[in-house]
Amino acid sequence: MPMFGDLYADRRFRLSFWILVLLVTLAALSFFSPYDPTRWLQVPRNQPPSWPHILGTTSKGQDVLWEATFAIRNSLVVAIIAGVVSRIIATLIGMTAGYKGGLIDRVLMSVSDGMLVIPLFLVLILLASLLRGRLNPVNLGLLLALFGWAWDARTIRSQILSLREREFTYTAILSGMRTLRLIFREYLPFVIPLILSTFIGNMAWAISLEVTLAILGLTNLDIPTLGTSLHWAMSYQALLLGYFWWVMTPVALAVLLISGLYWLSVSLSEYLDPRTRFQRIGVK
């Protein structure tokens, strides 16, 4: 795979790639966990890191390391659902607005501008506080997807706008290609790189919102995610009591996961953007 090789030459890509491999491995370990993540008091409480509890135990009587493996897995589930569904919405809206133009374009774009201007976070809080406790990872992912498409729909629209004026569009229309076929066969290949790099950026966004909503106690707190783990640590005053292993594990994992995804998306979008690509290779 030459593309992977090119990407791998980028230091940021290398670093984020291995961080993500490590975290996905940890998430996969959750399938072999000796403990049930939802049950309390399975191990001695408040133990500092030592064998066999490598990262210590919590005041809830759970092993921090095994709990963290479930947390990563569930946070990834939220992120992937939010990413996939919001990509579908963004692509549909961006393509329709860009291709149809006119009134439809204006309406769709003012809706997405409205979503950008309004403090979305507050609307999410309002919604989550009404759904409190029902927000398992799947529902939360869907909810975030409803709010995460506006910016990327704009990007896709502007891409389509420029494609619409190209020669091959006219050729296709004149030779009788149907609109849907034109969009899927001719335009989609141009848009796919954009969808891919915004997908990863959107995953990072979803994870950080999950953390925030969980800390406010607005998601289902029985299901371990990076956010709910931190929520329990904070509400048991782990910080004041000095159980730093309990607080720092979800914090460190969330920082690693979010930065890993973010760098990956930055590195990917730079790779896919021809201007910066030339700059990197050294061609003037």
């Binding site: 950080s208 919102l209 953390v211 925030t212 930065s259 995804l261 973010y262």
Partner: peptide
């Protein structure tokens, strides 16, 4: 700054 940029506000505040 790229290191800090993507982090959620709550985590940076907490740190």
């Amino acid at each position: 700054l790229t290191l800090v940029r993507p982090l959620p506000h709550y985590l940076v505040g907490l740190l």
